[in-house]
Design a binder for these strands. Structure first.
Lengths: 382, 382
DNA sequence: AGCTATTAACTCGATTTCAAATTTAAGTGA
DNA sequence: TCACTTAAATTTGAAATCGAGTTAATAGCT
């Protein structure tokens, strides 16, 4: 494997502590011995770390599960009272925020609609306000905040740029601004990618090291986990498959180029449905019509699935993932959407088709992913 | 960053030694202090490691370069006599093999033509024979062998499978077979990916952590370096962009599907040129015709470049790489190929187009990459 | 020449981590 | 009840790594 970075002792120590906490969170009830085997550390060393984490209140010891044979292990659990993390997901029309405890269980959430064309300062204020609202209500210490926003992300500086859908979205200092207000580390990440994080740690991607999530909301993008790592690209702008050409798609209004996003995003789908109905259709109406078997609506859905299938096929042969996860409102339609999608993908594949599943998160996936991202990047301070 | 694996002490030690050697190889003349800063190790620790590597004959100390101020550092160089590595690249019609010394300098190479439809046992015999021929001629110890072959790769077992172009290419035990004959560790990797390795360590990708190489030979594939790591996919089958649909391409013979590979690989290009000429055209002839300004040939080239540009644009927005490198015979055509390619890519991009360059390796890129792969995976035995 | 500034390389006591041995806490069967 | 087995947790002495301080080697200046 090319140039894996060597870490200094301090980094290693913090990394081991973080990794221990992570493993206990992901699957509680582990013992020191089990962790030692998993991390290939000496049992004695693991003991030292675990003892410290227990002493500092991050882990708690439950009394021991019986075992067929041998001394029963003392089981470890994350201490929910150790602290909490916030996650917020902003996409042009909506703002979702969550608070999770130390074991990633949801403790609070909120949703706010955002007016179209809200200027950037207003957006930032609303993000702060939403975070404040999920922050209240318990006295656990706040440890870190994850923020999911559209566009390219400069993670080091906490800046967001270049979303086509928001004017003035350029070098917006999301990270520094929130860090100053809440006095904790803030991680900024693209919101399609945080949805992939949510899948990786809580959803359909648990235990996998190679998967692709295709997010279909106002725009279309992918979050890719390869070798267990999130792909961000050199400028934090990876995953913009919405810009891929879609030459086979039916023409939309003549001026715009035919891309995956202009022809087959949720926006494009709802617009097509609105045009067919002669009146504005929102997603709930669209869903209701689809579930009642409306032919026109189902045809629109199938048409879009056809386009998505092309992209999925391409991602499949490019990444050779273990699984491809469809994320976003369409995932909530179940077989109505997934069946035509799968059959279209299968038709294109000569070899084994990808394992294709729908996300099981609702709308809060992006915010949960942001919180999970913050949690997993967070290091127990020494 | 998700679940980075914690390493045991032994792994760390071997890893540090390998990393030190790597850095000295990539850029000679480094000092202990410089290496300590780069790896964030204590100078004392670095000293211990370097001393050991010098004692064991992997590094040699040159006397000290002057410095504006301060004690001049003892410069370190890889010891070319420490050992050598072999690399071999098999693609359906050709076999390239190289021997490199410990600092990755070429010491021997050879090329063999392989008859079309050569059965698998014959292929393996020819690979062994080519390796044997570059092995001879000096007495440095052989340390490891890298093998580049088409198809999906099971790296752990050293098996290759599933190339559409070779019948019977299924679970071929390349690694075990060569390991038994040559008694050294053998690394097997897909040959498009080894070409990316060659770029990463010796070519246009040096110093980058995010780039894409697009290889156009008999087939079309990509090798992607993301976060400094090579993407292989869950089954070692990543990068098969040759299977991407190419609906805009002109029709080839009616039966075959229109994919990037069927419409725009080197094979497809030469076939189109042959049809136009009414007689078989090989690449050297094609090249001569292109360089003499033959309109038909240039039109065929431009047509292909148009298709490649679509794929490059898609890879650009998907990976957000620092650079995209075109690899393979077409890269040798220089501006004749690159100019239409670049203009076509630019036409598709609304934002900044990718930095697009041609590989500077000749045909031995794959073999060199295989050797580099073996070298970088090799660990100084303890 | 002698002094100062600067950086490399080395030395050495303190700390971390390991591997092996020991202790602990159960179940099992005579 | 009491060995015997098994596996977790802990203890312990050895090996590794660190960080701070020391020495070495050079340039520039007086």
């Amino acid at each position: 494997m090319p140039s894996s970075r060597i870490k200094s002792k301090h980094q290693i120590v913090a990394g081991i502590e973080a990794e221990l906490l992570k493993r206990v969170r992901v699957e509680g009830g582990k013992s020191r011995a089990e962790l030692a085997r998993e991390l290939r550390l000496a049992p004695s060393t693991t003991g030292i770390y675990v003892d410290r984490l227990v002493r500092e209140g991050f882990l708690i010891e439950r009394d021991a599960a019986p075992l067929d044979t041998g001394r029963p292990p003392k089981q470890l659990e994350p201490n929910p009272a150790a602290g909490k993390f916030l996650g917020v997901d902003f996409e042009p029309q909506n703002l979702f925020a969550v608070a999770v405890d130390f074991s990633l269980h949801l403790v609070r959430r909120c949703h706010r609609a955002v007016p179209a064309n809200e200027p950037v300062p207003g957006i930032l204020r609303r993000i702060e306000e939403a975070l404040q609202s999920v922050l209240e209500g318990d006295r656990r210490p706040l440890l870190s905040i994850g923020v999911a926003v559209p566009g390219s992300i400069d993670q080091a500086k906490g800046l967001a740029s270049g979303s086509e859908l928001i004017s003035g979205w350029d070098n917006v200092p999301v990270g520094p601004r929130l860090a100053e207000k809440f006095k904790v580390p803030v991680r900024v990440q693209n919101n399609i990618r945080t949805m992939a994080m949510a899948e990786l740690w809580l959803g359909q991607g648990r235990g996998l090291t190679n998967f692709v999530s295709l997010g279909i909301r106002t725009g279309i993008g992918t979050g890719v986990i390869a070798n267990g790592q999130l792909l961000c690209g050199a400028q934090g702008g990876a995953g913009e498959v919405g810009l891929w050409p879609a030459p086979d798609a039916p023409a939309t209004d003549g001026n715009r180029e035919r891309t995956l996003e202009t022809t087959s995003s949720l926006g494009a789908i709802l617009q097509a449905a609105s045009e067919a109905a002669g009146k504005p259709v929102d997603f709930d109406q669209f869903r209701a019509q689809a579930e009642s078997g409306d032919r026109t609506v189902l045809a629109i859905l199938k048409q879009a699935a056809e386009q998505h299938a092309v992209a999925i096929y391409q991602l499949h042969v490019l990444f050779d993932p273990e699984r491809i996860i469809v994320v976003g409102p369409l995932a909530e339609l179940g077989a109505l959407y997934l069946a035509p999608l799968k059959s279209s993908v299968r038709r294109r594949c000569h070899r084994a088709p990808p394992e294709l599943v729908a996300s099981s998160f609702g709308q809060y996936g992006g915010a949960l992913g942001a919180a999970a991202f913050a949690l997993h990047e967070w290091l127990p301070s020494r």
